[in-house]
Structures are given as structure tokens and as C-alpha cells.
């Protein structure tokens, strides 16, 4: 696909100047910004936010990319300064175990319980007789043998 000159993505809305960067870095930069939360407006990513801090942080992310840091290193860099709060994607850790695993554990548990119950209900319905039926059957058999 044809692409026009790639421009640094963010700085425009904060009113700063723009640098031409290569395409892959541009893509990385953009994806990173969507994963990071602005601490000022708090409900926008760094990519969307107009706050000054967001502008500073975008510049920092750009600098770190230019320095050749990997995505993980950049995220660790920001996490060391602003904590987990800046990460829209909660890190995998003990404190987030319930968050990440909770829905799936619950899913497995309910699925297992339900399947077991359906099987049992089915067995009871098709295979066994109720107490009344059993008693009647007994009576019938008894009379037959008399």
C-alpha cells in the first residue's frame, strides 16, 4: 500500500513541531501511545490527549525510540516513573492475577458445573424412576407373583 511521507503522529495537537521518522518506528510509536494513559485527563490515551504532560511524554517516547529502546524497555521506563497507572494494559503479576484469569477461571468452572448437571439431569430423566413409580412397580410385581 502506498503511504505518504510519514510524520510524527502526535505532536501536532499539542502544537509542537514534527519530525519525519521512518515508517516502522512511526507505527511502533503510534501503537505505544495507545497503550499509555494520560495522567492529566486520565481517560484518554497519550495519543488522544491534548494535555501538556501528554506532549512531554510523547516526546519522551519518541526520544526513547530514537535511542533504540525496545517497546518493553520504554514501557518499563515509564512504569518506573509513573507506576502501573500509566499502562492501559495491566501488567501480568500477582496483583493482577484475578483480573486476567478471573473471567476464564469462572468460565471453566461454570461450564464444568453446568455440563455435569445437564448430564445428571438427563440420566435421572431417562434412566431412573420416581419413588411413586418404583412403589407401583413393586406392587405390580408382587401381585403378579402371588
Amino acid at each position: 500500500m502506498k503511504r505518504a511521507t510519514a510524520w510524527s503522529f502526535c505532536l501536532l495537537f499539542a502544537g509542537s513541531t514534527c519530525l519525519a521518522v521512518d515508517e516502522a518506528a512511526d507505527e511502533r510509536y503510534r501503537n505505544l501511545l495507545y497503550e499509555l494513559r494520560c495522567l492529566v485527563c486520565q481517560n484518554q490515551s497519550l495519543a488522544d490527549s491534548d494535555a501538556e504532560l501528554a506532549g512531554d511524554l510523547r516526546r519522551r517516547v519518541q526520544d526513547l525510540i530514537d535511542q533504540g529502546m525496545s517497546d518493553e524497555e520504554i514501557i518499563a521506563h515509564l512504569q518506573a516513573r509513573y507506576g502501573d497507572f500509566i499502562l492501559y494494559r495491566p501488567p501480568l503479576a500477582w496483583r493482577t492475577a484475578a483480573l486476567w484469569a478471573g473471567p476464564f477461571v469462572l468460565l471453566a468452572l461454570t461450564a464444568w458445573l453446568l455440563l455435569r448437571r445437564i448430564r445428571r439431569g438427563h440420566a435421572r430423566a431417562s434412566g431412573s424412576l420416581s419413588d411413586v413409580e418404583r412403589k407401583r412397580l413393586k406392587d405390580v410385581l408382587k401381585r403378579g407373583s402371588d
Binding site: 497503550e35 494513559r37 507506576g83 502501573d84 492501559y88 484475578a98 483480573l99
Partner: peptide, 22 residues
């Protein structure tokens, strides 16, 4: 996901965010 930041706060753990990637 919506309440987890609050749960974390109740437990006295550091603030965190749960966003679109989650």
C-alpha cells in the same frame, strides 16, 4: 475490569489502570 482499580485501592496496592487493551 471497571472496578479493579478500586479493588486494588482497597487492598492498598499501587494505583493501576485497566484500559482498552485489557
Amino acid at each position: 475490569g471497571t472496578l479493579y482499580p478500586l479493588i486494588v485501592d482497597v487492598l492498598g496496592l499501587p494505583s493501576m489502570s485497566v484500559g482498552p487493551p485489557y
